[in-house]
Amino acid sequence: MAPTPDRQISNMPEEVELPRSNGELVFEAPWEGRAFGLAVALNEGGAYEWSEFVSQLSREIKADPSEEKAYYEKWLSGLAGLAVKKGLISEEELSRRTHEYETGERNDDDH
């Protein structure tokens, strides 16, 4: 069953608004779409309320007033932070796994 786009996700508050071009969502790279899907899927699975994610994201955005980082980098930081906060993963295992992908120790690359 395909989920239908949720209005609270399609229409986020202005300060955390999803990047769009001509009304369409814009992903600068495939991983951004993946990070997007992951956050939405976790919410749908009941891991957290969407509002909790929004406030986490909003914090990341406010911490970067000069907008040096791309939107989805902040999205990802917010998501990882929330996953740790909710006890879904630990920061340590995330760093370790990231390192494994970086060194090629782990590779299930299919993009």
């Binding site: 992951l38 990802l76 998501l79 990231t98 992908y101 782990r106």
Partner: peptide, 12 residues
């Protein structure tokens, strides 16, 4: 960011 996204997804 790409690597971290992959890592996060794979753990979850």
């Amino acid at each position: 960011a790409e690597l971290r996204t992959k890592a996060l997804e794979s753990l979850l």
